[in-house]
Design a protein around this nucleic acid. Sequence first.
DNA 1: ATCTCTGCAAATGGTTTGCATGAGA
DNA 2: TCTCATGCAAACCATTTGCAGAGAT
Lengths: 138, 138
Amino acid sequence: MSDLLGRLRGRGWRMTAQRRVVAEVLDGEHVHLTADEVLARATARLPEISRATVYNTLGELVSLGEVAEMSTDGRAKRYDPNAHRPHHHLVCSRCGAIRDVHPEGDPLTALPAAERYGFAVDAVEVTYRGVCPDCARA
Amino acid sequence: MSDLLGRLRGRGWRMTAQRRVVAEVLDGEHVHLTADEVLARATARLPEISRATVYNTLGELVSLGEVAEMSTDGRAKRYDPNAHRPHHHLVCSRCGAIRDVHPEGDPLTALPAAERYGFAVDAVEVTYRGVCPDCARA
DNA sequence: ATCTCTGCAAATGGTTTGCATGAGA
DNA sequence: TCTCATGCAAACCATTTGCAGAGAT
């Protein structure tokens, strides 16, 4: 729990039952749910929530900068509530498990000026891929 | 030109007019086309090529390891023919322009063992984001 | 009271698939 | 010849949108 709801309230975000449930479902560490998974968990707590509302709310949280969209693997986008603290991702190539990681050093400095093509670089996304302990054991 | 076709022929890849055109369209440096763009350029050279064939062929090139799929931004996947030489991407946040870049040092070493959660890490994808010179000027 | 969020359902965009035909090795 | 790639169209999946009504501030 990293108090996503508290932060949202502090920003004067309009609160409704649906929006609260989406934020609750999303809050935590190492959480990377798809929109569909968010809908499923939200429906469990509040049956009268609709798919469109989940998408609307996710989109809003993303544009508020409170949730980050990961377009990592094939199909559906995943939503990561840890947008306020920069981190990277470690993904299992077999089962798709995802962990948040914090590399040492500033990844931006790894790109030499000669390789910047005149871009003003201000962010970097890093995804490490490998096999998780559970899959390695099996 | 990095001779994608030559490599494919060398691997005994079944050659047809359609497959050759897709490979030709894709070959080069800093090429990151969507399936739709590949179809458009392929159609210009060979009108009787179909969308399904483009998708089939792209999928096959990806599973052969000759082309890499980038799931970077929002909508459509992009296809990168430089899969044989590891590199990262530099993307313009405004216009979406993409360049291939080659950071110094091994990016894999940037992830401390204590942050690996027991994973056997074997690859890393890096996307730098910033504003390209053209957009900065405007 | 006002402003907007919500639900429904239909539309959209990207990608995949089934099947009969036709071309490669 | 025998296999497999192709084309067409329909299916699919994730996501977006229009609209009328309910709900929050």
